[in-house]
């Protein structure tokens, strides 16, 4: 298997023109028309994972330093968090459907599922912004205590990732609309797929560790 993939990589490296790269795509029978984009993107996700690890560690350390301010129990609205979680989970499965339609070559259906994914993403960010606005309105601002600083940084960073994911999603929908499901667009959609599912994985950590455990304490 190892020698096989090395041989295929050599073919991929040699093939500079589009025809060869298509052949490489077919011959390898995997999702990456241009060599190791997927591995590279995976490595980026792993480095992003380390950013979140640092933010989780910060939250774990200072998460109980309320400075006589509000505690998670006073602030967190679990039904809202459950709704938020379901939005992200639905967006994950609809992105999966978009990928399946992409594989089968149905452009319109792929676009439709991407649009649905985007709407769920927007709903998620909207609910999160509503929650933040509500907290700030109650005086639970990031400046209030170490707990709130860590909370806003961790959850806000995740929300920022989702927001940029939506921007990326819209960009790709325009590109797919203009160029169709060409190998380049498929590769981009696969990268975004990994990014989107990765954000859902991070959110599992957030709702468990920050919201649910926070209310328990």
């Amino acid at each position: 298997m190892a020698s096989h993939s090395i041989a295929m990589n050599a073919v991929g490296a040699a093939g500079k023109n589009p025809v060869d790269s298509t052949a490489f795509y077919d011959a390898k029978g995997e999702h990456h028309p241009e060599g190791s984009t997927m591995l590279g993107f995976w490595l980026y996700l792993m480095s992003d994972c380390l950013i979140f690890a640092a933010l989780f560690a910060t939250y774990a350390v200072v998460g109980r330093n309320y400075a006589a301010g509000p505690s998670p129990k006073d602030l967190f609205d679990l039904p809202l968090v459950a709704l938020n979680t379901s939005m992200l989970l639905f967006s994950s499965i609809t992105y999966g459907f978009a990928m399946l339609e992409m594989e089968r070559g149905y452009l319109a259906r792929c676009q439709l599922w991407l649009a649905v994914t985007g709407l769920f993403g927007i709903a998620f960010v909207g609910l999160e912004l509503y929650e933040f606005q509500h907290l700030i309105h109650e005086g639970a601002t990031p400046q209030r205590s170490a707990f709130l600083s860590a909370f806003f940084t961790l959850v806000g960073t995740h929300g920022l990732h989702v927001t940029l994911g939506i921007v990326w999603l819209v960009t790709l929908m325009v590109q797919v609309h203009r160029r169709g499901l060409v190998p380049e667009n498929k590769r981009r959609l696969l990268c975004l797929s990994m990014f989107w599912h990765f954000l859902d994985v991070i959110w599992i950590g957030v709702f468990t560790f920050v919201y649910l455990m926070g209310v328990l304490q």
Binding site: Y25, D26, A27, G29, E30, H31, F97, L100, E103, L190
Partner: peptide, 17 residues
Amino acid sequence: AAHGDHGESHGSFKGYM
């Protein structure tokens, strides 16, 4: 052949569900 494998390595409807 490639497409058959493609579907497998990228999940199926059943897998996603």
